[in-house]
Design a protein around this nucleic acid. Structure first.
Lengths: 246, 246
DNA sequence: GAGTGGTCTAGACCACTCC
DNA sequence: GAGTGGTCTAGACCACTCT
């Protein structure tokens, strides 16, 4: 026999594995069910554990699985639709019950944020930490940066940090006229602090939503919100029940 | 000496590596510059290649690096801001020069898309493939699903597939009154066909933008657009020059 | 303490690009 | 053919959770 080329499509093992497991999830498992552990799965499929893990990682990235150290791998529920549409000229903290102010500090403002803010050099920037919770589970961690110039009425005698201060900053911000806002979404990996708030490991994939609040011809505030990419689907329209399609 | 616990923070090696390399990218490298190869980097940092790769993978996920098999690892330019705001009541293909219709076929429609479409069971669904190109490089691959009922005027004698057919479907679609649309963004991994169009490996992370076009009280079309997550930043406002902040 | 997923190693071979 | 990143292996140990 000659050099018969039957193996024309050398599909990676982990890719094929992913497909097989994905189909098994559809037919043989219910949401929340625990899969066999990695060592057993690897043995069952006849691959090294690292290869098996590569397949599981992809499925977790696609929101099909959920893995927790010390616990196990479970079948994830469908992603939650989280509304991030610009609620017509609304400052953060105005009637939105899903966000809760957690803290405020004179944090070190990232250079990338400073570039977006129309802040004078050396101007102090308030950093308000907020957490977005739906159905009791945190879905997003936000850092809202507000230059001191945007909240001139802020009581200097107020607490220098903590939740009370955070609410004070938000209250002052609402005094301004909101001219508009623009928003961008990109992929990122969770910083250590965000990961902790979201109950994830540092470096896990997140959707970073950056919002710029415009008032009086300047950028009055910048929000950097970090959404769990595994469990969230960001929605922009009026109907929040779009299903995933990848 | 007792059990002095100086190693209080057992930060993973790859995480620390990532930080070190990230800082080196800021100071010692220019955009487009080629990094030393993985084997040399691993040796230089005194870690196994797999560990080094874990750090590089994260940096690629964050859009800092670009890796191409057979070529090398280069410093990535800042992410491109891609406008995905709902251009006020516009059907796809109306005056948007960034999209080009590539193909049309009676593709197998995914179950998830069928659930979104108000299509009769068994109704044929046209699948139009389009490619979004900015600055000569493809940034997104789209599959636009149009039930036959949405384009009643489509010439039955037209070509059953190919670019000509794609343009015909888009032309017919524009005859309808567009009542509204809603949109969602989520993380996914590139299918083999999308990956090929986007010049990426299958499984690479993508931002999946699902758009539902509403007309006459029904879902007239559904678009599933796959954006390269490494190079793209999706923007929704009017100013497209937001910088990343993660 | 038992069991889970997370990290890490030191190797090997393969697929691809470019010369 | 030389050099690159991509895949895969078979182990080891660590961090965490639950009981």
């Amino acid at each position: 026999m000659g050099t018969t080329q039957l193996e024309a499509a050398p599909e990676p093992k982990y890719w094929h594995l992913k497909t097989v497991i994905s189909e098994a999830l559809d037919t043989d498992f219910a949401v929340g069910e625990i899969l066999p552990n990695e060592r057993e799965l690897a043995a069952r499929f006849g691959v090294a554990r690292a290869t098996l893990r590569q397949a599981l990682e992809q499925l977790e990235l696609e929101g099909r699985l959920q893995r927790r150290r010390g616990v196990g791998t479970t079948v994830a529920p469908p992603r939650v639709g989280v509304d991030v549409s610009t609620t017509q000229h609304a400052w953060p903290g105005a009637g939105e019950e899903s966000w809760q102010a957690v803290d405020s500090a004179a944090d070190t403002t990232p250079a990338a944020v400073l570039r977006l803010l129309d802040a004078k050099p050396g101007e102090t920037v308030h950093a308000v930490r907020r957490l977005r919770v739906t159905d009791g589970t945190p879905v997003a961690a936000e850092l809202l940066y507000v230059p001191a110039g945007s909240v001139p009425g802020l009581d200097p005698a107020a607490a220098p940090e903590g939740p009370a201060r955070a609410r004070a900053v938000l209250r002052e911000l609402r005094q301004l006229a909101l001219d508009g806002q623009d928003r961008s979404v990109e992929l990122g990996s969770a910083r250590a602090d965000d990961a902790k708030e979201l109950d994830r490991l540092p470096g896990s994939p997140v959707l970073v939503v950056t919002t710029r609040y415009l008032s009086g011809g300047r950028t009055a505030a910048v929000s950097v919100a970090t959404y769990r990419a595994d469990t969230c689907r960001l929605t922009f329209g009026d109907s929040g029940d779009l299903a995933m399609a990848s």
